[in-house]
Design a protein around this nucleic acid. Structure first.
Lengths: 147, 147
DNA sequence: GCATGATTTTAGCCATGGCTAAAAAAGATT
DNA sequence: AATCTTTTTTAGCCATGGCTAAAATCATGC
């Protein structure tokens, strides 16, 4: 990898560029987990408990899908649940949920401040929140205070 | 679904909420295709041709992964390619690529205008561009002209 | 024009995130 | 307490998007 270098042509920035795509793929990995814990936290706050069925309903997904996903989240130490019972968040789960809520709130309020409708802000923020870096989030927050 | 309504409690907005998640999942479906065609278009413009290997390099992904993805894109009528040869975009492929570029450019310039670094704008825009609705994109464009 | 080295594709593995249909558990009703 | 209904889980399917290792093809030097 040092001496030959057969076809450099002009692809020198390739590695640099690939970083963005790698980040997007990594974000997608954590996205589902974050959506779940955020939703579970909301349900617990709103109704006192979170049941798998409610999660499925809000996510717009089949019940079985949620059961499977919850198993993975349990393996990751984010939630705890016994069969046929309500879902609980672990310490890590709450931390992730809080982080997601904070980020979500900023993005949604930012979109509103930018002038889009409430409906669009709600929908777009759901997709955008997972791809906003710390720096961009800070810039959005700053924009909010200035307006 | 009309007469009984057994447990409404206060989950009436569930269907509404689920729409956002459905949209995010749908966006993820088209995301890969869009990234590929956009990248292929760039390679064709920059270097005259796009080879699978270059795509793999820029995406930061194994060669075999690209080969497999290109087959799917071919089935979707976005690219055309013969084994061991360069990749071409179909009419639909070009349309999708142009749309992606336009959207990408607006999002990236918007982030810059918001005050984030060039590096961050480049990286974040890659993830955000696929989750920005027509309305939000328009709001970003408007913000750009005002500034 | 043929052997050898480089590149590209194929084969086959894995995890994820969907689904439906069947089984199991919980909860009501009598 | 036994049955019947509803809810939840399990089982098993599918497509996607990754990977590595092996096979096939291409291209070069001789």
């Amino acid at each position: 990898m040092a001496s030959t270098r057969p076809k450099p042509r002009k692809l020198s920035s390739a590695k640099l560029r690939s970083a963005a795509f790698r980040r997007v793929r990594a974000d997608h990995q954590s996205e589902l987990a974050q959506d779940y814990v955020e939703l579970i936290a909301d349900l617990i706050d709103e109704r006192g408990e979170a049941r798998g069925t409610d999660v499925a309903l809000r996510l717009g997904v089949a019940n079985a899908t949620v059961v499977k996903a919850l198993k993975r989240l349990q393996d990751q130490g984010l939630v705890s649940q016994e069969p046929y019972r309500a879902i609980f968040l672990t310490g890590d789960g709450w931390k992730l949920a809080e982080d997601g809520r904070r980020r979500h709130k900023i993005v949604e309020r930012f979109l509103l401040a930018l002038g889009v409708s409430a409906e669009t802000a709600r929908i777009d923020s759901e997709g955008i929140e997972h791809h906003v870096s710390r720096e961009t989030l800070a810039a959005m927050a700053k924009f909010l205070t200035r307006n």
